[in-house]
Amino acid sequence: MSGTKYAKAVGAVRAMESSLLSRNDIDQLIAARSQAELNALLAAKKNTDTPQSTLAEVWELVSNYAPDSAGLKILLYRNDFHNLKAVIKAMIHNRDPKLYYIEPSNVSLELLTEAIGKKEYELLPKHMRKTAEEAYELVTETLDGQLSDSLIDRSCLEAMQLDAKRFGGEFMQKYAELTTIAADIKTAYRCSLMKKQYLFIEKAVCGTSEFERETLARASAEGTDAVFALLESSSYSEAAALLKDSPAKFEKWCDDIIVELAETARMQAFGIEPLAAYYIAKEAEIKDIRILTVCKESGTDSTAITERMRKLYV
């Protein structure tokens, strides 16, 4: 009965799960003939007064219920590091960082801007300090945005893996691992298409127990065929087939493996896992609604929309 301190939070999350969209709901939404009908269907599904139409609202709700959100914060690391990239670039190009800042994040825009602007990196959370300093120096010295981006992306994945081991338990470790694998495959594939050198790729990929950094970087430097061959020889051979078929299908697979992980928390009565799973479920749901809305506006046919829909938690 470990994780009983999350009893209240899990109770609340289980009650909220009944308002998550199911496959049938998505089919109905796809069949909707107008935006008004789509909105009406979504409104009918709501069973709580608490707004949950954006991830920032979902995060606020989940983190308010959680008695200890240190492990959950790992879910926002990708946003945190994206915001770091955005603020550095916005400052260098004299643009408003607010335009590129995404929520929810563990670090507010004000704090991030102050830390980078005044070079007071100790204001930032521990997992971002060194990366922020190195990335800022790198981009100001070399003016190579790609180099600093790859440094930040890799640091993000490393921080996720490290903090998942420290605070998150088995579920968050698996989340960090799957996120890293998906990101590494994407990086390796793109680098091979752009014919990047081994030294660049080796700095860009993070590495996991499934794909070691050097092995993946070497395959990427050899070309796309070597990347596919490496994937086919691993337990992620499905990813190779999808990547060959279309990058959009591979992106869907990346999202789906995270939802599949979340599904493992459905049977858990206590602990941080149901909370993390709910956030992941809402993330997939919000993404599905966004894709659906855009597809409807552009007049995409129902079959194509169905193919693009992410796996759902319910």
């Binding site: 009893a7 209240k8 939070a9 899990v10 109770g11 609340a12 999350v13 289980r14 009650a15 909220m16 009944s18 069973n47 709580t48 608490t50 219920y65």
Partner: peptide
Amino acid sequence: GEAASGVVSVD
């Protein structure tokens, strides 16, 4: 009671 109050707070 903790688990129940979580549920009741939503529904």
